[in-house]
Nucleic acid binder design. Structure first.
Length: 551
RNA sequence: UGUCCGAUAGUAUAAGGGUAGUACAACGGUUUUUGGUACCGUUUGUCUUGGUUCGAAUCCAGGUCGGACAACCA
């Protein structure tokens, strides 16, 4: 028997509509405004819309909602397309609301002819004054009852560029006393003498969102127009236009947008972080943008998995960052090769190692489906190890290096700490060990069992690299909800740069697509800032750490 | 003071009148040449008050709490 996987509320609606024969083909759309970069919240909507048509058949359009020429740019169109493709989705048609400007203009004329729209020369303040409040009804504009002929005449002149911005607007004639503020004669066209990224200067009037979105859905025969909760109150208007215009009845459904702990998601706030140089651009690896996550080392698969796991519902939610971290660890654990890098080095000298150097064999990834293969790792009597792997006075349950203690050097020998050197400030500068020749990894006949295994890099063979460690961008789990400015809660330690870490020589061939586990330190990837002489690695995420530090 | 939407473990999400389940998190254990992985286990929940019913997370009514709505933005 097949496993019954439960459906979310949108899937239920779709299955009902398909089973009842209401629709034969499912058509959805992803409709971003090209005015910024896509973030993980958009990824949720992308996975939903494209995922639905992958599951039920039909197709998904990519439609740019470009009805406001002053905020939109081709640059954003391109970056948004790149991000959607990177996530692994392909749209059926690439469309633009601006493709429909002629048709939309015709719809406006039709509404005027039906006596359902009028031009209004009131100022923005005057309109606001008559709008009422959520608890009080509004009042009719003095221009509400102009003749159809006059409305048509002025609207034509608006289109022909005879008026300055703001001189007139076109409003739907609905009900100034409606409990829904959006139904109080909403503005549907405004004059904007601005160059549009696609239509250039052809138009000087542009439709508002409410007069473009539903009609665009209808033109494309979108069956299920899925958007976020803040559009719930727009649905009444959405349906009103479709009804009065007598066009294909697309239906709008709303789900709760994604909120993630310790970050912000609003475009306005992300823009502020970029503009005020609080991060290094839209693709800063600390940003929740798709491009930031990509640069950080997240995989498309991990993001799709995340979107699958968070679910689709109508209640507001705040997802814990740990779920995103789980998703990327789960993917990388199976795919990332294991290598060794020492982030905070201290010298370890093996006093009885006479061979000079030796090539050892290391497994690339025992968790990989194909076994991962092996590589050569050079070894010598002088190594770099992690400073935190040595304690002069070991804590309870410490099973790394300490005076007299033994540990396994990963892929190599067991060593015993015999001595250490301190500088005049009391800092340990060098650790002296002896090794057990019979304990070589893979052919250990020593019979010695040690609890600790530490990573290392041979000092004479090591390459250096810059390593960038990232932590959560905000110290508050809910920076949006805190008192005062959200920027007051930025985490000052969200970025730590280690300019001179040591990496094993095999990493010299790292490329931008590679994903690596630095053994015991986390998952890393090469950053685009790398040059031939200077490699830069980003830490995608740490390994899960269940070691309870003393104290 | 209005209208609309919502409420299930710490966080999400199922159960659609009949055993409140799953995942992440947390905690404990086994295995381990990564204090990782894998495997096993533990803790924690139906906002509230009534009603309908043999039986309610589910249906109904009232309340409480949270969110959205007064841009010539989307």
């Amino acid at each position: 028997m097949s496993e019954e996987k439960s459906l979310n509320f949108i899937e239920e609606i779709i299955e009902n509509d398909l089973n009842s024969g209401k629709y034969e083909t499912l058509v959805t759309r992803f409709p971003p405004e090209p005015n910024g970069y896509l973030h993980i919240g958009h990824a949720k909507a992308i996975c939903l819309n494209f995922g639905l048509t992958q599951k039920y058949g039909g197709y998904t359009n990519l439609r740019f909602d470009d009805t406001n020429p002053v905020t939109e740019k081709t640059e954003y169109v391109n970056s948004q397309q790149e991000d959607i493709r990177w996530l692994g989705f392909n749209w059926k048609n690439e469309l633009y609301a601006s493709d429909y400007f002629d048709e939309l203009y015709g719809f406006a004329v039709k509404l005027i002819e039906k006596g359902l729209a009028y031009v209004d020369e009131s100022s923005a303040d005057e309109i606001a004054a008559l709008k009422g409040t959520p608890t009080e009804p509004g009042q009719d504009s003095p221009h509400r009852n102009r003749s159809i002929e006059e409305n048509l005449d002025i609207f034509t002149k608006m289109k022909n560029g005879e008026f300055a911005d703001g001189a007139y607007i076109l409003r739907a004639k609905i009900d100034m006393a409606s409990p829904n503020m959006l139904m109080r004669d909403p503005i549907i066209y405004r004059i904007k003498h601005a160059e549009h990224h696609r239509t250039g200067n052809k138009w000087c009037i542009y439709p508002m969102y409410d007069f473009a979105h539903g009609q665009s859905d209808s033109i494309e025969n979108i069956t299920h127009s899925i958007c976020t909760l803040e559009y719930v109150s727009h649905r009444e208007l959405y349906d009103w236009f479709i009804e009065k215009l007598e066009i294909f009845p697309s239906k709008q459904y709303e789900f709760a947008r994604l909120n993630l702990t310790s970050t912000v998601m609003s475009k306005r706030k992300l823009l502020q972080l970029v503009n005020e140089n609080l991060v290094n651009g839209w693709d800063d690896p600390r940003m929740p943008t798709i491009s930031g996550l990509r640069r950080r080392g997240f995989t498309p698969k991990s993001i799709r998995e995340f979107c699958e796991r968070i679910g689709i519902a109508k209640r507001e939610n705040l997802i814990e960052l740990s779920l995103l971290e789980f998703c990327i660890r789960e993917d990388l654990n199976k795919t990332a090769n294991r290598v060794m890098a020492v982030l905070d080095p201290i010298k370890l000298v093996i006093t009885n190692y006479e061979k000079g150097t030796e090539d050892l064999i290391g497994e690339n990834n025992p968790e990989a489906e194909d076994g991962g293969g092996t590589r050569v790792i050079p070894f010598s009597n002088e190594l770099w190890i992690e400073r935190e792997d040595f304690m002069e006075v070991p804590a309870k349950k410490w099973f790394r290096l300490a005076p007299g203690a033994m540990v396994r050097l990963k892929f190599a020998y067991i060593v015993k700490c015999e001595d250490f050197v301190k500088d005049e400030n009391g800092n340990v500068t060098e650790i002296h060990c002896t090794y057990i020749p019979e304990s070589k990894s893979g052919s250990d006949t020593s019979g010695i069992n040690v609890k600790g295994t530490i990573h290392w890099v041979s000092a004479p063979h090591a390459k250096t690299a810059e390593i960038r460690l990232y932590d959560r961008l905000f110290t508050s789990e809910t920076p949006d909800a805190e008192e005062g400015d959200f920027k007051d809660y930025l985490n000052p330690e969200s970025l730590t740069v280690l300019p001179n870490a040591y990496i094993e020589p095999a990493l010299a061939d790292a490329d931008l697509d590679g994903r690596y586990q630095f053994i015991r330190k986390g998952y890393f990837c090469l950053d685009k800032d790398s040059t031939a002489d200077k490699l830069v690695f980003n830490r995608t995420v740490t390994l899960k750490d269940t070691f309870k530090k003393p104290n």
